[in-house]
């Protein structure tokens, strides 16, 4: 009993939600937002798609298996910390790119770490929701 209205509506809402979550992630450093909330919004978006049609379409639209996202996210977070070790400073010290990037403003390893958190949150939530839905 897939409702046509919902799936068409989702086709418009879904990109908006993704856009907003990226927006939340990138400006997290200065205004409210950040990796965690962004991740949750994306997870909600994909579960909406899964609710509207079925789990397999959601997984296809996502393209990547959520568990892979967990791994990549953790890797990104760790790498953003390890680079400090390589540079001889204590673990997790932030390193910033000198020039300001026009849209994002200051860019540095904490942003990479935030991106790692973002991916992990998406991976975790969607692993749970998709596994539950697959039954």
């Amino acid at each position: 009993m897939v409702s046509l209205i919902l799936s068409t509506a989702v086709r418009y809402i879904f990109p908006l939600q993704l856009l907003f979550s990226i927006f939340l992630l990138l400006r997290g450093h200065n205004e409210p937002g950040g990796g965690f909330v962004g991740g949750l919004v994306v997870a909600a978006a994909f579960s909406l798609v899964a609710l509207a049609n079925n789990v397999w379409t959601a997984q296809r639209t996502m393209g990547v298996n959520p568990r892979v996202l967990i791994g990549v996210g953790l890797l990104a977070a760790a790498v953003s910390g390890l680079q400090a070790l390589i540079a001889g400073q204590p673990f997790m010290t932030a390193a910033w790119i000198a020039r300001d990037i026009p849209v994002l403003g200051k860019v540095g390893t904490p942003l990479l770490f935030d991106f790692g958190v973002y991916l992990v949150v998406i991976g975790v939530t969607l692993t749970i929701i998709f596994t539950l839905m697959e039954e």
Binding site: G28, H29, N30, E31, P32, G33, G34, G35, F36, W96, G105, K106, G108, P110, L111, F113, D114, V117
Partner: peptide
């Protein structure tokens, strides 16, 4: 380099 203290602490 971030004004949002909460996120800065977290990250």
């Amino acid at each position: 380099k971030g004004r949002n203290v909460v996120n800065v602490i977290l990250v």
